[in-house]
Amino acid sequence: MENQINSAINAIKLLRSSVSNVFETTLSAQNNSIQDESSFLLELQDQLSTVDVNFKSIESTINALNVPSGPFTLGNTAVLNHEADPDRQGVYTDLVNSYNWYEKTHLYSALANTMLSQNSLKRSFYTSSNKRRRPTVPVNPAQLVDHMINSINTNNMTIKVYRPFGTPTSAFLHVNLSRVMKAAIILRGLVIELVTVKGFNEPLDSVDDHWIESRYAVFRKIQDHAHCAMLHFYSPTFAELATRSFITWLASYSNIFSEPCKRCQRFLLNNLPPTYRDFRSLEPLHEECRH
């Protein structure tokens, strides 16, 4: 039924456009008095025949339409017909729009739900037993963090620990990578909460700087990849190993400007160097080259 109505509306549109074509031709012929008469007549005949064809197609589509059997069941919206106030006459279109919008929201949320249930990215860890149903925060996280940082030994990389809020559970790691970039890793216990990536000459001293994006596109892109990596390496049971792998992965950015993409062997793609590092092999790749 809907398809038929749609094709009928399309046929009407076609007819309207062909008729307006006829008027346009006659108007331009009137303006150009020198125009060749026979060619004008031929053109007009051509267009009139298209009008005829379009008209016939409308007739046929309308004949194919069924007469609706009974009144449409529109629920309460049918009462809108009785609305006399001209200000409220427009309500019906808004109503239809909002209905469509709700339909779409419903559809998208159902899709998102299936996607998310396939890829589990839960950031909190709960055991099945009722007794232990609380997030795992290590007994003395400050010592564990210090111990972990001291045991990480990577070239070109210096790591400093700050605890700006004086709490033992949260620590800020400031990572300086060669003379290339800076990164701040905010930890809760041994679990990474937030990563900020900046250029080597950008400020990262005050606490507020951790929430300001880098002014360079390269480092903004790296920060996006770092957030993906943070989720990729996340493991609540082996938090130390996860954080350690993340820092090793981050250290592979020391050659960001000097190493070409492993796949296309070029430095630049869309004016960006290879900003992606493979999670296993740590090979430099462009974002577009990784698949």
């Binding site: 003379r179 290339v180 080597f200 480092f219 400007f257 000097s258 430095f267």
Partner: peptide, 10 residues
């Protein structure tokens, strides 16, 4: 973004 010529000359 880069501060060292040797890193980004290529």
């Amino acid at each position: 973004p880069c501060l060292v010529p040797a890193f980004c000359w290529d």
